[in-house]
Design a protein around this nucleic acid. Sequence first.
DNA 1: GTCTATAGCGCGATAGAC
DNA 2: GTCTATCGCGCTATAGAC
Lengths: 192, 192
Amino acid sequence: MKHSDTKTQILDVAQDLIQRRGVNGMSFKDISETIGIRRASIHHHFETKEKLLEALMTRYSQEYGSAIEDIVASSASAKNKLTRYMKLFLKTAEADPPEKACMCGMLAAEIASIGEQAARLVVDYSESSVQQIARILDQGKKNGEFQFNGDINVMARMIFSFLEGGLIFVRANGQKQQFKAMTKQVFKLIEA
Amino acid sequence: MKHSDTKTQILDVAQDLIQRRGVNGMSFKDISETIGIRRASIHHHFETKEKLLEALMTRYSQEYGSAIEDIVASSASAKNKLTRYMKLFLKTAEADPPEKACMCGMLAAEIASIGEQAARLVVDYSESSVQQIARILDQGKKNGEFQFNGDINVMARMIFSFLEGGLIFVRANGQKQQFKAMTKQVFKLIEA
DNA sequence: GTCTATAGCGCGATAGAC
DNA sequence: GTCTATCGCGCTATAGAC
């Protein structure tokens, strides 16, 4: 079993810190102390903090983007797909130790503090997530699983917004079981 | 017409900066340069940054808390109340210049970076907001305006989460008209 | 690829004059 | 109540040895 290389370790620790404290609450010093190297060594792998954020968000988009694509492209029911999609968020809410929000949500909250490139990656990822949710809703509406009034895309954006905001607030108030209750409530609103 | 005093100016500028950049993206230097005084003068009014955040969140709870109470306690229809409540968020989304999210949401996102006292004020305020939304939903369900499956409190928390998350993401992607569309979608889901 | 050393600035905070 | 001056630390970033 090989240990992950330094570059990967840096990305892992940076992501963890951002999910807990945010971009401006995460520093090269924090990272270096956590993985036991010097700050200068981080700069060897990532020239600037801005570049680190770009690399982080790129990896994130690929990992989660393909996980979500797998879900949407599968032959399962719409309900099963939406359940699996929301389970990705549930996993973060129920992480041990908890106190983690979605990294995309944290970067979006501090969008003014990250570079243009990283900001675009955040926007692109979130817009693509909304689209994927919309596809699931569309499938469900067409095959009769789901039934609700209003526009599918608006509804998809609402679900995404609630998932992101929900994670931030259950982390703040510590009541993570509330998050699960809300994901179940989604189905009560849209199921036929 | 008297100009607002320094203490109020400091709170106003601090709140504005937090809504745009977040707690860790706001500094005494930013505040001092914006209102044209020295950093030491801010410390005269607020001993520490932590105390400033407490004062800020206390004022915020009072202002918005009483505005929300007025709405909930009025004799209007549930639909009218919920519309007025959501209009408080819409006003932030459509602020000019925009790029503002809800201060409570920004503090919640960076909850690990603020003191215990300020953190509790954030949690208390958001929980009380959820309760107020629940009261509106309860009124609407009882008098037949609203009709939806599931628990009222969970539904209230979902609406609050979506409003907070929604503000963060429409600020990031610049499409504030999407926020208004989502608030309208709420009624399509719950109206009888 | 990791290190030491350092530059240069921003930060929160305090002492003390006015 | 505001100022100047300063402390001490954290921050991102860079140069250059090993």
